[in-house]
């Protein structure tokens, strides 16, 4: 299939492993799904910090369940990416360890307090879920199938995250103040989650033209703000004055770009932020620690019985 045909046919769940697709499509889809899968891993690793911080057994259990879900999402997504034939799962996991693999900006900031839990579990997961719901109609079918299962599970994450926020904002005055301080720190990062305004985004046009992406960052940011600002305010959080938000003529919401720290954002996107190194490093050390498990699985697989080896 040539690119022109791909663009012509582009639509929800239009292409799958049986189609002969141009390299440009397969590479773009791989980049996108690998980024998504990496983010599930790094989000899961970040989130596991909260299990220790959680104030009750129920919260600890819910948190471990969430971490388990996220790692499961990563597994689904690496499989969906692998079906494009560009990279293997092992290659993608190695790239994440060497610092070549990219992932969401919010997961480059190490966390160390329970107050940060609703930042990740409610706002970031909420934003991610907005995006993931639109990816149910991506053109790469295995990706869409992964989104069906991911979206099924995510409702629990977002509601649990909101429940933590609610609990903390019903706490003492001091607790509420700490929550507000944490929110002030995280709010600009959460706004950057949707990237810079459309015209600056490098890969968007192609991804949209071939149906990989079905919503623009602008649309996602707008709907996110319309849904989540009222939630924050409902619990008594104040939206910081800066970065300033405004409505464009077409009704979409935007952020004054100058009010955000784009240098930090681009440093993060190159994995060169201090937190990036810390997060990537701690995950790599954990991956190394269980090398023996992978090795014994491989030894077992290559010595296994009569079934021929069919990885795919």
């Amino acid at each position: 299939m040539d690119l022109e045909t791909v663009m012509e046919r582009a639509g929800p769940r239009e292409f799958g492993p049986g189609d002969d697709l141009p390299e440009k499509y397969r590479k773009a889809a791989t980049r996108m799904i690998q980024f998504h899968a990496n983010s599930e891993v790094m989000g899961g690793y970040l989130d596991k910090t909260f299990t220790r911080k959680a104030p009750s057994l129920d919260r600890k259990l819910a948190n471990t369940a969430k971490v388990q879900d996220e790692i499961g999402h990563a597994q689904l997504l690496y499989r969906a990416a692998e079906t494009l034939g560009v990279k293997t799962r092992a290659e993608m996991l190695d790239e994440l360890a060497t610092g070549d693999g990219k992932f969401l900006n919010c997961f480059h900031y190490p966390v160390d307090s329970w107050y940060e839990a609703p930042m990740i579990d409610f706002f970031v997961d909420g934003g991610a879920m907005r995006r993931q719901a639109t990816l149910k109609s991506t053109s790469w079918t295995p990706y869409a199938h992964a989104m069906d299962k991911v979206c099924f599970e995510e409702g629990f994450h977002v509601k649990h995250g909101e429940s933590i926020l609610r609990e903390l904002m019903n706490g003492s005055k001091a607790t509420q103040e700490r929550m507000q301080e944490t929110f002030d720190v995280w709010w600009p990062r959460i706004l950057q989650f949707f990237g810079p305004t459309n015209d600056e985004s490098v890969h968007d046009d192609f991804a949209q033209a071939v149906g990989l992406k079905t919503a623009t960052n602008d649309e996602l940011r707008t709907s996110f703000l319309n849904m989540y600002i009222p939630k924050a305010e409902k619990y008594g959080l104040e939206i910081p004055e800066y970065p300033r938000l405004y409505e464009r003529d077409d009704g979409t919401m935007a952020v004054r770009e100058d009010d955000l720290d784009w240098e930090e954002f681009w440093t993060i996107s190159r994995n060169e932020y201090e937190g990036s190194k810390e997060q990537i490093g701690s995950r790599r050390r954990r991956q190394d620690a269980v090398e023996w498990v992978r090795e014994s699985l491989e030894t077992w697989e290559s010595s296994a019985g009569p079934t021929p080896q069919t990885a795919d």
Partner: peptide, 8 residues
Amino acid sequence: FAEEVADS
């Protein structure tokens, strides 16, 4: 408040 959360 969010269709996808309600759906899930």
